[in-house]
């Protein structure tokens, strides 16, 4: 990531204000603990790394003992696992999916490809750095990582959630302009998603100084109301 990009992504200082009631903190801890012990992982595979997930999910490595289960719809899922290279065409769908997931949501980038292009670095058709398009909570190294490494990564994510460190989803709202800019670079200025990210940011009270900018301005200019998809065979 360029240093200019780093400046743009800053954690909003006004995270959770410390609550005065001591019981409230206990309650928050309990919520986070429960959240970390019951996660649904979206059943969405992008690249080769997906092949390591069936063993990780089933009885041999059994991620269900950690409370992690596959889930078929984005709206009910907590974890988006990007399993390897993301072609530009897939990336569109990944972003649509990500935006539809309910917060809090966690993104894990596994395999080399999500970090710096991996073995597809010369390909015109794949995105190179996942973190340009959405905030990532955790990376797992490997090409592909073994199921053990995936489990290890998921455990780490659970720890982060318990310790209130897995808050990357907030960054998407706080730095929406940056992510939208990178998306527009790939998909053109007409790019829009059905989700009203800016509206959501307002609801979550996550409007930061970087939420709006030149790219969201373009979005607001070109944005058309979404119409139901025409189904044809």
């Amino acid at each position: 990531m360029k240093s200019t990009d780093l400046d743009r992504i800053e954690v909003n200082p006004k995270t959770m204000p410390k609550r005065t009631n001591p019981l409230a903190n206990v309650f928050d801890d309990l919520v986070r603990f429960c959240r970390s012990r019951s996660m649904f992982m979206l059943h969405y595979c992008t690249g080769c790394g997906a092949i390591e997930l069936p063993p990780a999910m089933t009885s041999r490595f059994d991620m269900e003992r950690l409370g992690i289960q596959p889930m078929v719809t984005p709206r009910q899922a907590d974890i988006l696992l990007i399993t390897g290279y993301v072609s530009i065409k897939t990336l569109k769908r990944v972003i649509l999916t990500y935006e539809q997931m309910g917060s809090p949501k966690y993104v894990i980038g596994i395999c080399s490809c999500t970090v710096n292009g991996g073995m597809y670095w010369q390909s015109y058709a794949t995105a190179k750095k996942l973190d340009e398009y959405m905030p990532v909570d955790l990376y797992i190294a490997g090409c592909m990582p073994r199921p053990e490494a995936v489990i290890e990564g998921l455990q780490q994510l659970m720890d982060k959630i318990k310790n209130d460190q897995a808050n990357s989803w907030k960054q998407y709202y706080e730095n929406y302009d940056y992510y939208l800019g990178n998306q527009q670079k790939l998909f053109g200025n007409n790019w829009q998603t059905p989700t009203d990210v800016i509206g959501e940011a307002e609801i979550y009270r996550l409007m930061g100084p970087q939420t709006l900018g030149e790219h969201t301005k373009i979005l607001q200019q070109v944005q058309k109301p979404m119409e139901p998809l025409e189904m044809k065979l």
Binding site: M1, K2, S3, V115, N116, G117, W121, Q122, S123, Y124, A127, K128, K129, E132
Partner: peptide, 16 residues
């Protein structure tokens, strides 16, 4: 005559 590597170099950035 399409140089994929060149195209990628022109259009993407890498981890620094």
């Amino acid at each position: 005559d399409f140089d994929s590597e060149q195209w990628v170099m022109d259009n993407f950035t890498w981890q620094d």
